[in-house]
Design a protein around this nucleic acid. Structure first.
Lengths: 242, 242
DNA sequence: TACCTTATATCCATCTTGCACTTTACTTAT
DNA sequence: ATAAGTAAAGTGCAAGATGGATATAAGGTA
């Protein structure tokens, strides 16, 4: 039997199949704290709870394409740093039916994050903090008490933050959270927000400059009532380190 | 409409769904080089090519459970270090139909790796090396030229190795590749095989001992015709660092 | 008992890091 | 104009980590 004949005989319906979705963790750093965009669910299950934007994966689109489509449809954004995070496949994670969800996280500079909020009224900003009981994260909207998230979305967000924290050390993800031109102070604020701890200024500046990922523009910040900081631009050498 | 009524009306067949599989990258370090277990495909597609052991995810099992089931059924192994790697979802990665594959990697000490080979005759050991053309990895069986892998399994293996390399630094994964008792030299050999480079001995030993993950057993290696090395045991403090 | 081999310990130069302190540059108040 | 205030940017130093050479220890084997 040659390959062609084989393909024709193949029964694609021999087994029952799960649904596959993509959920998006849209992150930024707002006012010194990490933040995500959430949508309130109107329908069962978890009606009234907050959830990550997501959607089913089409039969003719790759997972990455599905993630980008959702980014566009739900947040009206094209072109963001986006990366697959983890796939959640517990049997009962969705009470309706078997759903396997591939979580992606996207990183946005604040301005673009805010722009997404303006264009997508169904999305709301939630800022993240570590829960006092240790371990997980809690999401707060408008400074109120922590909200309850739908499905296993709390685990997704916690994992995204953990991954981001881990990548700060050896990758240049932080630049995805900043505008094209930024000061060293802004960069440090991003690091401090994600790591959840203050960093020593001269040491931070030295490390960053030594990495060679920063290019001085020669221009300076304006508007400050003190010595203006130099504006830098990210300069990532050739091969995009993961 | 309450939740119960909603669930009953929900049409789980409204959309076409992809198949979901789990592929397993069973790794170890053999003779100073990383190695994986492969099976030769007898059927289309990719008949005659080498592939990772894998299988469909059942409707009533989680992804982790599916990975463990495949570990058991294909390699006759229970209890190995196992971790989700990445989900591969390109549209045409399987010519038969849309298949999304969640890749897991498992780490085994050499003896258990060899035992799996004995109990599962359909599996073959392939040792991994970095391809001279840079970037990816090549798998070699019995010292022959690099074999051609089915599907996107070469990318899966390359990613597994990359992930493993990254985790060496901050996690204790290496212990999963060693027997219960091991010497510092064995530990260093694992590191060198995965990183693909020689390491300085005194510095390595210092770093490892300083981490506090090693517990001296007081016993020593036997059979060597030179000074026997102390045997250590892994001692991982409370919270299992990812 | 001499000798070979590898484990283990010591030492030192170098590099990195944390941190206090100084100098610089710009705005605002007087 | 000039002084005061503020944060950026730069300097210097001590402590710690790291690479690498060298010395000593502990087994076997000839």
């Amino acid at each position: 039997m040659d390959e062609r004949a084989y393909l024709e005989r193949y029964d694609a319906n021999a087994y029952d199949r799960p649904s596959v979705t993509v959920d998006l963790i849209l992150m930024s750093v707002v006012d010194g704290a990490p933040a995500v965009l959430l949508a309130e669910r109107g329908q069962h299950p978890f009606a009234g709870h907050w959830a990550l934007p997501g959607g089913f994966v089409g039969m003719d689109e790759s997972l990455d394409a599905a993630a980008r489509r959702i980014l566009h449809d739900k947040a009206h954004l094209t072109d963001a740093y986006i990366e697959q995070l983890y796939t959640f496949g517990a049997v009962q994670r969705d009470p309706r039916m078997r759903v396997i969800s591939v979580a992606y996280f996207a990183l946005l500079p604040v301005e673009r994050f805010r722009a997404a909020l303006r264009h997508a009224p169904e999305l709301t900003l939630a800022s993240l903090g570590v829960s006092p009981s240790g371990g997980g994260v809690e999401a707060r909207i408008d400074g109120d008490g922590p909200v309850t998230l739908a499905f296993d979305h709390d685990a997704m967000i916690a994992l995204a933050l953990e991954r981001l924290r881990g990548k700060l050390d050896y990758s240049h993800v932080a630049f995805a959270l900043l505008p094209e031109r930024f000061t060293l102070r802004m960069l440090q604020e991003v690091y401090e927000a994600i790591l959840g701890q203050r960093l020593n200024k001269p040491a931070f500046r030295r490390r960053m400059l030594d990495r060679g990922w920063l290019e001085a523009t020669g221009e300076r910040e304006t508007g400050a009532s003190f010595r203006p900081a130099e504006l830098y631009r990210a300069h990532i050498p050739k091969r995009d380190a993961r």
